[in-house]
Design a protein around this nucleic acid. Structure first.
Lengths: 357, 357
DNA sequence: CGTTAGCACTCTCAAACATTGAGTGCTAAC
DNA sequence: GTTAGCACTCAATGTTTGAGAGTGCTAACG
């Protein structure tokens, strides 16, 4: 039993109808609202076939049909048409991009909030991390004799700075020495090349003032290992309550509970994002709490090995067409904006780097 | 009609009963479960009086009584007995305090999460801000010729650091000069003494390299004005779903919507916190979205003008006794922990300062 | 005069039942 | 292959009913 053009049209009509009404779609509805000019009875026969093929599901005998996960998959992969963002949506997003520069995380947070407001869905994002970037500089700055700040940069972008309070005082000379040694030993390495062992070698190179040195080195190590431990930002969670599927408190509880564990969410995103844009439907995520939710995921690249992820989460019955197109557009805007505001020189450098090779 | 001892006892029994069952309490229940040894009929008469006094409410004729907001107020102010935290709760909190040092905001976040887990209520907190502290040092550090970092410290604690990307390069000499001038002009002032005007004066003192200077000064100003713009941290929101009053999606929507606006929440907290511990019941907050919720608020002080707020949010029918005692204990622990981990020297200095005067 | 037993009354809640309507699958005719 | 017609199914909705909880009032008691 093949999936001829007519079946595809009917399937598409059912899925789109269900997406917009959240009610099972019956044969009469399709017969009336499509250009197929077929009677309800004919549609019924086709619907029977589609159900047999596992693309539709009947909640109960006297209800219409609802797409199965397989149905959604087929829809997303080959039936769905591109949604065209409205002028209003575009301008809203654009003006959000104009926001004044703040810290990176706040910027991403605000952009996410705006995007969430446009799509009416929760938005998740991770801050950019370095994957293959090299540590460009490590600086230790003395704030006062008992306070040091360690600043680590990769690809000329500051990625981490950490404070260290000392129990005894240090002098400028010591700090200077520290800077030289750290630079000599760690700069130019990729993140994965810097291990604790590696750092401890530095320790012996210095000799003396062991206590402080150890503290600084530990901090350096910590900062480096946090380089890819990107923060997860989640905005617009309340939006899920707009969907009728969340009129059930238990479902709300389940999803919100899942959202509270940011680490878990971050892992999900990193694990599932292939290059470009991907759609994870229901159980495909293999996460029980998300078995009735879908995620549209995308990654943004800032050059020089910096990359992060953005995604939209909603019920399996979400408007994929709209979600995918919006996210696509949004991703591009985020790339442009973040590059412009935070990673301009990084970009330039990475380009030079490529030229030079 | 006075509020004699017997009435008080009955009121207390009703409130505590209602708090633990969430069901209206009838006269029979009180007659049985209290040591008053009165018949249900007598209790009924008293309940009638209490209702007339506005302390109780009858949802409908054949239901028991429920406390009014006034009733809760009276209970919190003079009926309530101190809850004693269990050993398990204490040890759980204690071990959370031992967590390894991270950034201040992450630490507060984690502590809040743990506390929220113990109380089973959402916990809100603000990061400490300076109120009357003086700017102790302003440092501009050159990360690379096109990137500067501005670090502002007050009371010897780093409070803000900001990055600045430049379109043209600067040299070490310029940065050095900048440091001297900024220090001379701004150090020692309180936050409120530093205005944009003030900063602009510096501008004329330098002369030349106008473009970069302007950018740096703007950043300084920005950082300073953000000093008291403390971040609001909210953890354990899902906990509200444990309360039966939130079986109504509309209420969930309303509260979660309110929670999404962190600014608003922060303002609420700062406006309502008097010194020490305070309880805001229902409409007392004057915030429509919170009219059926109460907040228990407390402030923590880290010395040297640093202070922040912590609070618990829940339905008006919350266990105030438990909330208040737990928050009291928790606040002390937070003070101790944060002082120890982040503000040790600040404390020391402020003490010296006082001695010196 | 405060307290209490007794009783009629009120109101919610849940179960039982009937009704409605949407949608189907099947059959027979076009 | 398509369609009209029809019997059938099942969720959803409305109605009725009874049980249960709790009250307020009255009259009697110590």
């Amino acid at each position: 039993m093949g999936l001829d053009e007519r079946k595809r049209q009917i399937l598409q009509a059912i899925i789109e109808g269900y997406i917009s009404t959240a009610e099972p779609i019956g044969s009469r509805t399709i017969a009336k609202n499509s250009e197929l000019n077929l009677s309800a009875a004919t549609i019924r026969n086709e619907m029977g076939d589609l159900e047999e093929m596992g693309l539709l599901i009947q909640p109960h005998t006297s209800a219409g049909r609802v797409p199965s996960q397989l149905g959604y998959r087929l829809y997303v992969d080959s039936l769905m048409q591109k949604y065209k963002m409205t002028a209003a949506e575009i301008s809203r997003l654009r003006s959000a991009m104009m926001l004044k520069i703040e810290e990176l995380d706040k910027t991403v947070r605000k952009l996410s909030a705006v995007f969430s407001g446009i799509t009416n869905m929760p938005t998740v994002a991770t801050l950019p991390t370095v994957e293959r970037g090299r540590v460009n500089s490590i600086k230790v700055v003395m704030i006062d004799p008992r306070t040091l700040m360690v600043i680590i940069a990769a690809g000329s972008n500051i990625l981490k700075n950490k404070l260290l309070r000392l129990s005894s005082e240090v002098d400028a000379e010591f700090v200077e020495k520290l800077n030289v040694i750290l630079s000599e030993n760690l700069v130019g390495l990729t993140k994965s090349e810097i291990s604790l062992d590696n750092i401890m070698q530095v320790q012996s190179a210095v000799g003396g003032n062991f206590e402080i040195l150890t503290a600084v080195l530990e901090l350096v190590h910590e900062a480096i290992s946090e380089l890819d431990n990107s923060e997860v930002i989640l905005e617009g969670v309340t939006n899920i309550l707009r969907f009728p599927e969340y009129n059930d408190i238990e479902r709300v509880k389940e999803l919100l509970g899942f959202f509270e564990d940011k680490e878990h969410l971050g892992k999900l995103i990193r694990d599932n994002a292939r290059g470009g844009l991907s759609v994870i439907i229901g159980e495909e995520s293999n996460i029980p709490e998300l078995k009735e939710n879908s995620i549209v995921l995308s990654s943004y690249e800032l050059g020089d090995g910096m990359k992060g992820f953005i995604g939209i989460i909603g019920p399996v019955r979400m408007n994929y067409s709209r979600a995918v197109s919006s996210l696509e557009y949004y991703t591009k805007q985020v790339e442009k904006t973040l590059r412009g505001k935070f990673f301009e020189s990084a970009l330039r450098e990475s380009e030079v780097d490529n030229d030079g090779k």
